[in-house]
Design a protein around this nucleic acid. Structure first.
Lengths: 198, 198
DNA sequence: GATTGGTTGTACCGATCGGTACAATGTGTG
DNA sequence: CACACATTGTACCGATCGGTACAACCAATC
């Protein structure tokens, strides 16, 4: 067994450590000194691994987060035999990933921060992919196209808001409650909607 | 009639300008150079007005935002003869304040950013005051205590999440839709719940 | 018109920023 | 062992950071 995040590739571990620094201090707040300390790597190694400097570090961190969500959340949402399983899996995955509300969403942090423009594409892609994948699952549940899209948008936005609020009042239970409510609303038998569509 | 940025006290205008800088660049990203440019004041004047430096500037900006919400949102929520008016007023006020989703919540930005700890109290106070005031209005609408609290928490978190998502995908309509849905859910006649309580 | 006290621009401070140069190391291959 | 090459620590760069010192300025009062 390796270290921090189980046996991942060394670069993945590095990206993971970088992610925590950006999470904790934001893009501009994460100085090379902090990064160096958190990763145990000197500037030499850092700039050897990321010739593009801090911006490349952040970009790759965001990309790896995006990839994780695609693999663990978005794809199951689309391919699950029963869409309910995909949706339930999404909430399970989200709860784990955000450490039940004790961890913050780096993509959200970047979206609100001053570095937004630098990573605008990446940030936008992450969220629309999420909404679209969830909407696809909801369609399979019997919701009409527009309704599915709005429900998905609503669910994603609730998760983001819950992270903000939980962090602000320093109470992870806010996040847990929000996930609970959101999942319940998405998964309630929804006979009405199913009827509407046939 | 005095408009927001119109003939307010000079210090209020100053705080307003400061707020926009912090909003756009975050606490750490808002350098004294940027602040000086945005306010038209040199360092001399700045440090004359805020001997405590950048931290005092941010603290006072946050305090003035908090005061605005207390006056324009929280108090009407508690004192409106018809709680529905208070709630509708909240959504109107929020929509105006956040420029229909084109403006971001500075308190939320701080909550997620690296300066969180510096202003933790202020940030927490803002949100719990909001939730509590809204919950009070919902109680008057006939909701049970716990349910009112959860509904209020949910509404506030939706607003924050909508701001994040709207900013992330660069589409203010996301915010508009979220406000619409949230208000509708809060104000729906709620005969069921009213019955439950008697 | 002199004096005064609040207000301002400007020069400057040490510290730290992100980034570069490069020499000293390690490491695998012949 | 010798070589090649990837990896690393360290010294250093100019720019900018937040903050301070202070002299010039200003309107008001006498």
């Amino acid at each position: 067994m390796r270290a921090t995040t189980k046996d991942a590739s060394p670069r993945d571990e590095l990206l993971s450590a970088l992610g925590e620094v950006f999470r904790a201090h934001g893009y501009e707040g994460a100085s090379l000194a902090l990064i160096s300390e958190a990763t145990g790597l000197g500037k030499g190694s850092l700039y050897h691994a990321f010739p593009g400097g801090k911006e490349q570090m952040a970009e790759e961190v965001l990309a790896s987060i995006d990839a994780w969500f695609v693999r663990e959340i978005y794809q199951p949402l689309r391919t699950a035999a029963d869409p309910r399983d995909g949706i339930a899996g999404m909430f399970r995955g989200v709860d784990t990933y955000f450490r039940s509300g004790k961890r913050v969403c780096l993509i959200g942090v970047v979206a609100l921060g001053g570095a937004r423009d630098l990573f605008a594409e990446r940030v936008k892609g992450y969220f629309v992919a999420w909404v679209d994948a969830l909407a696809a699952a909801l369609r399979k549940l019997g919701h009409a196209q527009g309704e599915a899209q709005h429900l998905a948008e609503q669910a994603v936005l609730e998760i983001q808001g819950a992270l903000v609020l939980a962090r602000a009042v320093n109470d992870p239970k806010v996040f847990a409650r929000a996930l609970e409510r959101s999942q319940e609303r998405l998964l309630e038998t929804k006979r009405g909607g199913a009827r509407e569509r046939r």
